[in-house]
């Protein structure tokens, strides 16, 4: 089964199978040494840039700002959900999210 992943409306949200799943304005704690100098970045999501998958994990790259140090930048790949039995299930984004820099391209159908 193919899962349709898209970034829409000027990067405002992530669409999974034509449903809005993750939106800008969320605040994420990131383990992302490459993003800023903070031990953990505390980042406002301002724009989604790309989406992709790693196995069953749905990941995104976003533009955001660390509200501790003020760094504004683009992130590596951040896990936001998993595909379980064909359905999107949120990853708890209140916890620390680990960022990786390499990722296979998004698999989407349109």
């Amino acid at each position: 089964m193919t899962t349709r992943l898209r970034i829409l409306d000027d990067g405002a949200w992530l669409s999974v199978d034509d449903s809005r799943r993750v939106s800008v304005s969320e605040l994420w704690r990131l383990d992302a040494p490459g993003f800023c100098e903070c031990d953990l970045a505390d980042m406002v999501v301002e724009n989604f840039l790309e989406t992709g998958v790693d196995g069953r994990t749905v990941q995104v790259r976003v533009y955001g700002q660390c509200i501790v140090c003020g760094t504004k930048s683009t992130t590596g790949w951040i896990p936001v959900g998993r595909i379980v039995d064909g359905e999107f299930v949120d990853i708890d984004r209140e916890g620390v999210l680990r960022v990786t820099d390499d990722k296979e391209e998004a698999k989407s159908s349109g």
Binding site: D9, A12, W13, S23, V24, S25, V44
Partner: peptide, 10 residues
């Protein structure tokens, strides 16, 4: 703003 708009943060 966030009352109706997908893009807004506040």
């Amino acid at each position: 703003g966030t009352e109706f708009c997908s893009l807004s943060i506040v």
